[in-house]
């Protein structure tokens, strides 16, 4: 598990991270979203015990990052922003080296590196110098390094950047598998579709502070307002005189589309559908209006930037 409270880091007079409080249970993924320089990497470095918090605390796999650096680092697999590969080594030697660093037995090293090289499609290139690898191959190898010692905690900075769609899919599948094996994962990403697909909770970080955090549904609800539903009609139809149930408001009438905002969908939707049927509305489809994490993120960022300009 990862738990932080008021985690803050100051460099000279600049607060790179301020008051970050998060909790990532085993089997959960937290996506940290934010602009470049928002404080994501600094947060990850504090969680790896590479940077000492100026204020607050963090516990990773039960160890305090400020006092048990080595234990924390032994429990964490990190995919760093830069791949950090030794280009004169080959992939096999590279994983062997990190297997030794993490005190794996020779047999475990062989099993793990064979599995990871095979899984990420690097087995054929395993004896080639890393310097000859493409960007995507390097990214996969760096991820393999982070997974080599099967850590209970994973800190992944842009895990699928620079990858082709197939490789990215492969990596996403692996992350999902790791999640199901009860690992706590923090993922920094600019890929909002990926975050939406994988994350259980999302934290949006801006200038070192978390602006919003919660599950995807909570974020959408809090940022974009109540869920909207749309009734698509077979022909133009006037909703005048429609007696809407409590907690439902009409948002938009657009020819053959009606849009409603619903406070309590579970209770109100059956009633709403009934009202539409009673009014003989020619309904073809009744569905939730899709809302993406991207919409929520962009709204938060726009509000934050406007607030910063105004302030």
């Amino acid at each position: 598990m990862i738990e932080t409270n008021d985690l803050s880091k100051q460099f000279h007079n600049f607060w790179a991270v301020e008051g970050v409080t998060v909790k990532v249970e085993p089997g959960n993924i937290l996506a940290l979203l934010g602009q470049n320089g928002a404080g994501k990497t600094t947060t990850v470095r504090m969680l790896t015990s590479l940077l000492k918090p100026t204020r607050g605390w963090a516990r990773v796999a039960g160890y305090d990052v400020a006092t048990h650096g080595n234990e924390v680092r032994a429990s964490v697999g990190v995919l760093t922003e830069q791949h950090g590969l030794y280009t004169r080594m080959n992939a096999y030697e590279y994983l062997e080296f990190f297997g030794q660093v993490y005190s794996l037995t020779p047999q475990a090293r062989k099993v793990r590196s064979d599995y990871l090289l095979e899984y990420f499609g690097l087995a054929e290139a395993a004896k080639r110098r890393i310097g000859e690898y493409s960007k995507g191959m390097r990214q996969k190898l760096a991820l393999a390094r982070a997974l080599m010692h099967e850590p209970p905690i994973l800190l992944l900075d842009e895990p699928t950047s620079a990858m082709d769609p197939e490789s990215a899919r492969l990596v996403r599948d692996e992350i999902a598998r790791l999640k199901s094996s009860r690992r706590s994962i923090v993922m920094c990403t600019h890929n909002l579709v990926e975050a939406e697909a994988l994350a259980d909770t999302v934290a949006i970080i801006y200038r070192g502070r978390i602006l919003m955090q919660g599950t995807l549904d909570e974020l959408k609800q809090n940022i974009l307002g109540p869920v909207e539903y749309e009734a698509r009609l077979a022909e133009a139809w006037s909703p005048n005189g429609l007696n809407l149930p409590a907690g439902v408001t009409m948002q938009q009438v657009d020819g053959t589309r009606l849009r409603f905002q619903v406070q309590q969908p579970r209770d109100a939707n059956p009633l709403l559908v009934g009202v539409l049927a009673e009014g003989r509305a020619p309904v073809l489809v009744f569905q939730e209006v899709p809302r993406t994490l991207e919409q929520a993120y962009l709204k938060v960022m726009t509000d934050a930037q406007e607030g910063a300009h105004a302030g």
Partner: peptide, 14 residues
């Protein structure tokens, strides 16, 4: 400069 130091420093070595 080559960016290889961070994985090494993130390891449990003292």
């Amino acid at each position: 400069e080559r960016g290889t130091i961070e994985p090494l420093l993130s390891s449990p070595m003292q």
